[in-house]
Amino acid sequence: MHEMSLAESVLQIIEDTARKQGVTRVKTVWLEIGQLACVEQESLRFCFDVVMRDSIAHQARLEITETAGQGRCAKCSIEMPIAALYEACPNCGSYEIHVIGGDEMRVKELEVE
């Protein structure tokens, strides 16, 4: 989805932080992106570069940590790794699986000067 507006949101977070903490330059940006967050990493990298141009994070390095999808079955309560939202519970066959991890999109950390 809209990797471009995600990159813009990342820039806002960076700028908010930079303003508060007297940062002059951002060198590295660590993001945590869940497998179920439907973000194309390559596309996000490209958009990141475009959006960060001429900003305080110009040419910053982008590090993405991917977190695995994790679900819990609403019927039998077992927890399981999930790769997609429409998978059935391997234990009882129910499709009512609640996502308990792997849908996050977070700015984790910055390396700054």
Binding site: S9, K27, H58, R106, V107, E109, L110, E111, E113
Partner: peptide
């Protein structure tokens, strides 16, 4: 990014880390 006069010699990094932990869609 090091600025004009090459003040950024290798090994003398003023880098620091800032923890953020903020949801990208928080705004």
């Amino acid at each position: 990014g090091a600025g004009a006069a090459g003040t950024h010699a290798p090994g003398i990094s003023q880098s620091r880390m800032i923890k953020i932990e903020r949801d990208i869609l928080a705004k």
